[in-house]
Each structure stands twice: as C-alpha cells, then as structure tokens.
Design a protein around this nucleic acid. Structure first.
Lengths: 194, 194
DNA sequence: ACTAAAAGCGAATGGTGTTAGCTTTGTCAA
DNA sequence: TTGACAAAGCTAACACCATTCGCTTTTAGT
C-alpha cells in the first residue's frame, strides 16, 4: 500500500487523539508508537511520518492533556470571586481530574514543563495567568503571587500524587484530610505576605 | 559456566546495590534486568535466580531507597525539640536528598507504598512513626496528626517533584519560595486542629 | 503530463524482558 | 566416600518495542 486515497490520510492530531484514547483505556504503558499505530490501523513506522519519535509523541500528548486540563480549570472558576471559594474550586477540580483520569494525569505531570522550550511556554503562561486570577483577591505582589502559586500547586499535586500512589489508605479518609488541608492552606496563604 | 566457585556467588543484596549504582550513575532508565546484569558481569537471565522479575527488582530497589531515605531523615532530626526547627529540618532533608540524587528520589516516589502489602508495611510504619516524632510538640490527636502528616508530605513532595520537573525556573528563586512556603506551612499547621 | 512530496508499507536492526533447558558446583545424607 | 539434589551461572530462543531504510502509490503543483 502506498499513499492513501484523498481526504483519508491521518494528521498529527489524529495520532495524538488516538494516543490519548489508548492511555485512557489501557493506562500509561499504552502510550507508545506500536500501540498507537495498532489503534489507528497503520503500521508502526508510519507514525514517524507524523511524529519525530516516541518521546516526541509522549510530549505532544502531555501538552494536549495540559491544554484540556487548563480549559477545565478555567471553566471551573468562572464567575467565582470569593477568595476561599476560588481556592477550594481549584483544589477540587485538580483532584477530580486526577481521580477520573489517573493515567492522563500521570502522563501530564510526568512531563517537565520548561518555560524556555517553545512548545511549553504557552502552557506555562496559561498556568501563571490562571493562578493570578485565582489569587487576585489577595492583592499580592508579583513575588508573593509566585510563592503562593508554588505552594498551592505543590500541595495539590503532592496530595493527589500521593493519593494515586495508594499511600493514603489509613484512617481518616482522604476526603476528610483534603478538606482539612485546603482550609489550612487557605489560612497559610496570608502568611505568604512578607 | 555453571555454578560459580565457593563464596563468590551473588546475593539479592548485590543485585539491589548494583541496581542502585546504575540508577545513580545513569538515571532511571538504567533500572532494568539487562543493564544491571551487565553491571554485575553476568547475563540477564541469571538475574532471575535472585529476583522474580524486572518489576520486582524495581520494587526492591525502591524499598531500599526508602530505607536509606528514612534513616537519613531520622538522623537529621536527632536532638531537635523545637517544633519549627523540626519541620524546617524535615523540609530541607527531603529537598536535599532529592537534589543530590534525583533519579533515586524519582524511583522511590514512583513506587506505590500500600500499607496492606507485607514488604511495604514496615516502611509505612517507619514513615508514620517519623512524622509522629516530628509533630510531637503540637500534641495533636491521632486524626490531626494524620492530616498534618499528609499536608506536609504533600507539600514537600509536590514542591520537590515540581522543582525536579523544571517548572520552577521563573523568578524568584526556588530557594526563596521554599523558605516562604515552609514558614507558611508552619503557621498553617495550627489550623489543622479542628 | 511530469515531477516531487506525502503517506502508507515491508524488512531489518538493536534494545528490552522473559522462559526453557543445560552445565557446573556446592551441600548434605546415606 | 559417594550419590543426589539444589543453586547459580550459561546459551538459545521468543516476544515486544522503537527506529531506520527503501519501496510503492497517490496526491498536488507546475
């Protein structure tokens, strides 16, 4: 078989979307050239017509998940203005996403998001903008905003990642802990101001 | 070659230690049956005389790293009784370990530590005991201790993991952020009490 | 109508984990 | 002392994965 008939050839988008479906249904290990090719009904080498390498595929997929996640985050805080409500919403949105799509969450967070790399920069910018919006009620300086952003991001991510890893099976429930921690963090935020 | 001469055959310990050396020098991808066998001067199938599978090797290595890490943590807080000093010490010990041995840290944290599994249980117990000692000055109830433990663990792990991933390259420095966050968390701890 | 690029293919290479079966050596009991 | 068995290495082989190469066919552009 040579080039397929008109309008029927695959695009990079198709590859990425197929890869995401693979990860959703079979987990992180399904994010590979061979598996994705099989999903699309083509042979593994054909993937390289659309994507540079397996690592590049993983990267593209991670970026796409980030985009979806950020869209979700932004939607979730629409219309909310209360400081505590904003933080609680972010916390729950992140955790819910991780719980509903654990494999996607791991692929997303496993990727180093360096602001210096061209394809990451827009994502990083969106993350920063999002947190600026979330922290707006506090009227922080720029530095304080970064500190607060790092603290919240670390705490939310750390909690969810640990929960996913299965460490948190003791009593009391993780739900209860998460609520307690969110409240403590909301209090902690004010101590960011130096 | 058949069975090697007296006193010269390898043990499971040797395998694990060689694997750790591999990870230290070449990173996470070097944690594999083939690579470790090469390191020991034996052929890959021989590894299976000491370890059930590649996954089991990874697991054993992760547990050994946990043991070393916990030993380090316990040593670091010896003789300290001030509440804030204890928390600051834990925070820095964890971060320093992750910075000096990023690959080991990733292998360690990537492993799901389920308290229900026999080989994990002692480690989980040590972690809990350690945090109980760290949080002793607060005179928390058992539940409060668990909440606080989860918050600190999440925040420290989340921060370090994010830092390792390269996300935190903006201004201000991560050192500065970490100090600010630690201080905010020390304040937040008191709000754990319900 | 011709050419060049695009998008698929098959075959082949080198890496990984794993199993099966062989050989040699050490150990222990008869 | 000898014989049997277990232990610890080996080689050969298989399956899976990523990747490269060269081939074919179709499409798009001049």
């Amino acid at each position: 078989m040579g080039r397929p008939i008109k309008e029927k050839s695959l695009t990079q988008r198709d590859i990425i979307e197929a890869a995401i479906v693979c990860v959703e249904t079979e987990g992180e290990t399904a994010l590979g050239v061979n598996r994705v090719a099989r999903e699309l009904g083509i042979t593994p080498p054909s993937i390289y017509k659309h994507v540079e390498s397996g690592a590049a595929l993983r990267r593209l997929v991670a970026l796409e998940i980030w985009r979806r996640f950020l869209t979700l985050c932004c939607q979730s805080i629409e219309g909310i203005s209360d400081a505590s409500a904003l933080l609680k919403t972010v916390a729950h949105t992140a955790r819910n996403f991780a719980r509903s799509q654990p494999a996607l969450y791991r692929v997303m967070t496993a990727m180093p998001l360096k602001p210096t790399e061209p394809d990451c920069a827009p994502i990083v910018k969106r993350i920063v903008t999002f947190y600026q919006r979330v922290l707006q009620p506090y009227n922080f300086t720029e530095s304080e905003t970064i500190h607060a952003m790092r603290m919240l991001n670390a705490a939310f991510y750390g909690f969810v990642a640990t929960e996913q890893a299965g460490l948190l099976t003791l009593e009391p429930s993780t739900e209860e802990s998460y609520e307690v921690i969110i409240n403590a963090l909301i209090q902690a935020i004010q101590y960011i101001r130096q």
